[in-house]
Each structure stands twice: as structure tokens, then as C-alpha cells.
Write a protein that binds this DNA or RNA. Structure first.
Length: 560
RNA sequence: GCCCGCGUAGCUCAGUGGAUAGAGCGUCUGCCUCCGGAGCAGAAGGUCGAAGGUUCGAGUCCUUUCGCGGGCACCA
């Protein structure tokens, strides 16, 4: 019996209580969905609900009276073994062993589809994340968004949404100019400009650009006139940085559907069109020689310049065009993940969204993630390109591997800043909880292999009433919770919930395993339905662990 | 100064109004005569930063306050 089925039975019991006149309540006051949850304490049964307390005010009676009326009727539902009224009016529900055990069959049958819901069906989501400037490799701050963003995309898809992963390349403007100047200077053997980019990678890229131009039969860019040389290094440098970033993200298991270049917005006239549109809508004004968007009409704390007095587009101008472009591509939900150092953009971006006539928070969502603090020996480590202490995506993967890196970055809420101790990562990689979860999966795989060798086959028998051990009730409960967790993670945009869930599921499995609820017969003991049914449970657990790890982009190894 | 996020076990972090606040790591004690000990059982460790308030009920919501991080451009 799944939680959803139980929820329906609960509703039916409540409706009957009202029909019988036991509870005086308008049925329209019932919440759309009656949810049951796993109580913290096992003694409180398999499932619990506080619906009686919620309805007490509307009905004008004590919660326990409602609870009693529902309990009497719910006890008659098939699959329900016991219903108790506890405390101020909780309903504690215990399922019939066989009804609870039926769940494993539905999990095995659903396979990779177990946990998918229609929660967000029909939504077209554009999820933008990472979007690091192509002026250097992705460092550890950006890696967090790669891990979290990609998992979020998978979670949203599992909840039924159509998702496009998008990366915005800021290949236009002052920082790119500085990048190009730095390349040019280093290629000519000169000092890095005052406001330029240092680091060994600049030299490497500069060399590669020169070699690339020569190989293509074009003149040595170092010898070109200043403007042309700068352009050659800009184009060549951005291009190389672009492929490097793409490649390291790919190695990290993150592939974007769309890599969008800011430059294209300026070249295609999209910026002018967006500004013209806002002008028609009456939100544009001219002052001090610049063109402004009146964002204060929509809650921003000051108006924003979109075309500077020198005629150049300000950064936000491209954002306007970009947002409009996404909407015109048919996305009803534009989600952007940003680091906390960009949270000041929220006000203007939401105002911009409203200026277009859209609904902030619905059509445009901005998720702010806190930054990663890098530690060494427990002390803060400042990343400095000059000091060579920048930790890149590639460094991190080399140190701990993709699975451990993704998992440790994705398992905590993006709302909390995260301390990453490099020594801890290098010295004790198996302290990462990912191994706890992966080991549980490897164990299920091992049990399945051994079962096959011993002639224990699922198709020979299944008797869920034999899943009577306490550890089995706990494990079944954890398995049944999975779809709810995924739906919640999708709704709240919090993929870390998947990791936390997997840790408790793995724990329930390990405990079950250590209870000697054996899948294999001992010695010359015959294979019984008990063995076969436990194999069903083992395999269902394996399926859910694999599904969950998949949502995190982490491998589910057969052996470790 | 104003705005946002965070203060929960020694450390890193879960817990978006429910019952006795959890996990991993670290410390201590046990468990390999049959499915892998990267595991399990148990112990120790908490005034959930502080003070008020709302509620039948607050780690969770509101106000104030302290501490930490981040942000407040005609930069990108």
C-alpha cells in the first residue's frame, strides 16, 4: 500500500464520518490533499496524520473527537491493521504487513520510473546555472552550481517538467577586453596589465591562440596592429576557454542543452528590440544622456541605466534581451541560479520581469546559493590566481573523483555557505557519505548476484506477509517515501533532499541486512518464499538507491 | 547605514507548525562459525546565538538584538 492509496482511504473515512453525522463539517473545507507522513517515533505506527487537529477549528469540536470518528471508519479499510488516536489528536496508522509489503512489487515493476511524478507536468523550464565568465577555468565556487544545478534539472524532470539546461557566456564587455589584453601582453612577453588576468593558464591560452592562428595560415597575431591583435586574442581566447569549460563540465557529468553567447544578443539586434518593447510599454526614460528603465515602478530600489551615455549597452540590457528571448522560445518558467555575490540583481531582474508584463516569482525565479569557503587545515584559504591557490573543477575532480565531489557539493542546502576542507578531501575521501550510500547499493547488487547463484529467483514466489520484521517495516517505510521526497525536492528546488533521503534509506538497508534477514538459504536449507520475498525487498531497495543516485549524477556501483 | 542568507552535538551539515531535535566524521565499548565489517549495536556529547511574541503546539512563523558571510555602479 502506497502513501497515496492510504491518503485516499483516509479521505474516504473522513467523508463517511461527515455523512454519518459524526463530524459536523463542510466537505468543501477539506484540504485538496490529505497527507500522511512517517512519524519520527516507530511506536507511533507506520504513518501518521494531523488532519483532525487541522479540522478542529472549522468543525468547532475537540480534535480528538474528530480523530476518534475517523479512526473507527479507517480501521475498516483494507490493508489497515490499526489506527490509534494519540496525543492532542494524531491519528497513528499501522498497515497490515502484507499490504505494506505489496509496495516492493510495485517498485520492482516500476523500475527506473519509480519516483517519477506528474507534479510539474506541462511546465517548460529553462534552468540557467554556472554561467561562469570565459576568462578563466571554473573554480570551486562555480562547481557547486554545476553539481546542484544539474541535479535540480534531473529532479525537475523526474517531477514531470520539461527542462532545458542553459549556460550563458558573458563574452562581451569590459572583462573580456581585459582578458584579451592580458593574452596579448603575455604573448608578447610583456607584464600582465594592471587590471588584467594573471595565472599560468593565460600564458597557455596565449600560446595556443598564436599557434592556432599560424596553423590556420593567418598572420602571427602578435605582429598585428593593436586593435586587430586584440580582436584575434579575444576571439581565439574566448573560443579556447569556451571549449575547456565545456569539456571539464562534461567530465563532471554536466552537459548543457544550450550554450548561449551574450555577444549574439548584441549582434542580432535583440537588445534594441527588447529596449524598444519596453519603450512601447512606457517604462523607458532618458536622463543625463543615458537611457533608463524605470525599475522603481516595480519594487527596485533605484532606476537602472540600460544604455550608457557613451552609447554602449549596460550589462542589464543584455539581460533584458536574454530574458525576452527565453520567453519567446516558449519557456513559462525561467529559473536562474546565482551565487550570493550576485543577489543584488534580484530586485532589478524581478522589476524587469514585471516591466515586460510577466509575474516575478512565477515566470522568473532567481535561486541564490551561498558561496563555498575553501579551508586548508581548518583555516580559510583565499583563492588567488597570483598565489596559485585557485582550485578549479579539474583540481577537485582529480583530488576526490566526480562522485565524491558532486555528492559533497549537492548534499547541503544551497542556502547555507559550505566549508570545504581540502585536506579532509584529500586525506580521507571515504569519510564522504557518498560511500555509505554507494556501499549500500553495491551490497544490494552483491546479494542479488549471490541469490542468482543460489537459485533464489523472484519469479518463483512472493509473499509480502512474510516481511514482518521490524527492520522490514522501517525499510518499507523509507522506500515508500521516495516519490514524496522527489516531488518535494522539485517543488522547493532543493535537490539536497535527495541526498539526505538516500542516506537514511541506505541506513535502513544496512540495518535490515545486519538483522540476518537472509536472502540466501543456509547450508542445505531449501529455498523458501521467505528468501524470495526478501530478494524482492533487496531488489526494490537497489532500484530506489540507483534511481536516487541517478538524480544526483552519482554512480551506483555494482562492486566497490 | 540599507538589503539578502546563515547561526542546531567537538567538526561539517539535515530538519519550510507537530509527539522524546537527527546524520556523517571525531571520541569510547562491543559484534566477522555461512548474503562484503566502506557495515551494525551501544555510550558520551545540545539552554537549536539571545530576548520577547503568535499558536493547543515553535529549531521552524513575527518583532527586536548579537555574531558571521555576501551585496548595495552609466563594472561585467
Amino acid at each position: 500500500m502506497t502513501p497515496a492509496e492510504l491518503s485516499l482511504a483516509l479521505r474516504a473515512a473522513l467523508v463517511r464520518a461527515v455523512d454519518d453525522g459524526a463530524v459536523d463539517l463542510d466537505l468543501a473545507d477539506l484540504p485538496a490533499e490529505l497527507h500522511v507522513e512517517r512519524p519520527r517515533q516507530r511506536e507511533h505506527g507506520d504513518w501518521a496524520t494531523n488532519i483532525a487537529m487541522q479540522l478542529a477549528k472549522k468543525a468547532g469540536v475537540a480534535p480528538r473527537l474528530i480523530a476518534e470518528a475517523v479512526a473507527v471508519r479507517l480501521r475498516e479499510a483494507p490493508g489497515v491493521a490499526a489506527v490509534d488516536v494519540a496525543g492532542p489528536g494524531f491519528l497513528n496508522i499501522t498497515l497490515d504487513t502484507a499490504a505494506a509489503g505489496e509496495l516492493v512489487r510495485s517498485i520492482v515493476e516500476a523500475g527506473p520510473g519509480y519516483g517519477r511524478t506528474q507534479e510539474l507536468a506541462g511546465e517548460r523550464v529553462n534552468l540557467e546555472f554556472v554561467s561562469a565568465n570565459p576568462t578563466g577555468p571554473i573554480h570551486i565556487g562555480g562547481v557547486r552550481w554545476a553539481a546542484v544545478g544539474d541535479s535540480l534539472a534531473r529532479v525537475l524532470q523526474a517531477a514531470g517538467a520539461g527542462v532545458t539546461r542553459e549556460y550563458y557566456f558573458n563574452d562581451h564587455g569590459g572583462q573580456i577586453d581585459r582578458f584579451a589584453r592580458s593574452l596579448l601582453a603575455r604573448a608578447r612577453g610583456e607584464e600582465t596589465p594592471e587590471d588584467g588576468y594573471g595565472g599560468a593558464y593565460i600564458d597557455e591560452i596565449a600560446e595556443a591562440v598564436v599557434a592556432g592562428e599560424l596553423a590556420a595560415g593567418r598572420p602571427d597575431p602578435r605582429t598585428l596592429p593593436a586593435a586587430e591583435a586584440q580582436e584575434a586574442f579575444r576571439a581565439g581566447g574566448v573560443d579556447r576557454m569556451f571549449s575547456e569549460i565545456k569539456a571539464s563540465l562534461h567530465d563532471f557529468g554536466v552537459d548543457f542543452d544550450v550554450y548561449f553567447h551574450e555577444d549574439s544578443l548584441h549582434e542580432s539586434g535583440a537588445v534594441e528590440r527588447a529596449v524598444a518593447r519596453l519603450r512601447e510599454l512606457g517604462h523607458i526614460f532618458e536622463a543625463d544622456g543615458a537611457t533608463w528603465l524605470r525599475t522603481t515602478d516595480f519594487g527596485d530600489d533605484k532606476d537602472r541605466v540600460i544604455i550608457k551615455s557613451d552609447g554602449e549597452a549596460a550589462y542589464i540590457a543584455a539581460d533584458l534581451a536574454y530574458y525576452l528571448d527565453k520567453r519567446e522560445r516558449g519557456f513559462d518558467r525561467v529559473i536562474i541560479m546565482l551565487g550570493a555575490d550576485h543577489h543584488g540583481y534580484i530586485g532589478r531582474m524581478m522589476a524587469m520581469c514585471a516591466a515586460f508584463g510577466d509575474v516575478p516569482g512565477v515566470n522568473l525565479e532567481i535561486l541564490i546559493g551561498q558561496l563555498v569557503n575553501l579551508l586548508k587545515d581548518g583555516k580559510p584559504l583565499r583563492m588567488s590566481k597570483r598565489a596559485g591557490t585557485v582550485v578549479t573543477l579539474e583540481d577537485l575532480v582529480e583530488l576526490v573523483g566526480v562522485d565524491a565531489a558532486r555528492y559533497s557539493l549537492a548534499r547541503s542546502s544551497a542556502d547555507s555557505s559550505l566549508d570545504v576542507d581540502l585536506d579532509l578531501l584529500t586525506r580521507a575521501t571515504n569519510e564522504n557519505p557518498v560511500f555509505y550510500v554507494q556501499y549500500a547499493h553495491a551490497r544490494t547488487a552483491n546479494v542479488a548476484r549471490n541469490a542468482a547463484d543460489a537459485g533464489v529467483r523472484r519469479e518463483d514466489g512472493f509473499d509480502p506477509s512474510l516481511l514482518e520484521h521490524e527492520s522490514e517495516a522501517v525499510l518499507l517505510g523509507a522506500l515508500s517515501d521516495y516519490p514524496r521526497v522527489i516531488a518535494q525536492a522539485a517543488r522547493l528546488r532543493e535537490p539536497h533532499r535527495v541526498a539526505r533521503y538516500l542516506e537514511t534509506l541506505a541506513g535502513s538497508y544496512h540495518k535490515w541486512y545486519d538483522q540476518k534477514r537472509r536472502v540466501l538459504p543456509v547450508g542445505d536449507e531449501a529455498v523458501t518464499d521467505a528468501h524470495r520475498t526478501r530478494l524482492w525487498l533487496n531488489d526494490a531497495t537497489r532500484q530506489v538507491l540507483a534511481n536516487g543516485l541517478g538524480l544526483l549524477g552519482v554512480g551506483a556501483p555494482e562492486r566497490m
